[in-house]
Amino acid sequence: MNNELALLNNYLVVGAVLFGIGAIGFLSRRNMIVMFLAAEMMLQGISVSLVAWSRYHNDFGGQMFVVFIITVAACEAAIALALILMLFRASGSLDIAVWHHLREANQPAYVDEEIPEPPPGDTAAWPRLVPAGIEPEIDREDTDHRPHV
């Protein structure tokens, strides 16, 4: 029975290591996808600790929290990847420092390396709805592009 008793301590150590490594990765990288990976790892560190507490207290609340954490992490993954795709299309780079002008107005710029030049403006346009009741004009190039719509 001795092995059951050391469980909480061991699991908390693993959770702390995952959280700390995730924090190091999140702070040291500038690639948005890698920062997202590190954030997922920090969430997993918390989840490991919660499962260990759940077993220690013989209560299902901790596992329930982990269920909610996984659900919210799935939401976070979906919205984060959509945002990363949008930012990548707008700037042509995954570097988070490209967006440093979004900082607060009174903060100084912190850029440790040169940011590469953004590519010339994008040539894509958002799809738009035609006004109701009017027959849309058929774009020749568009129909060539999507012949089976």
Binding site: A78, I79, A82, L83, L85, A125
Partner: peptide
């Protein structure tokens, strides 16, 4: 969130002469 993510990541098509840009370019 899933509806919003699908909306954000929707495909754009090439801008041509007959489809003027209706949104401001997302240039930083």
């Amino acid at each position: 969130v899933l509806i919003g993510a699908a909306h954000l990541a929707r495909a754009k098509r090439r801008r041509t002469a007959s489809t003027p840009a209706t949104t401001a370019p997302l240039n930083p």
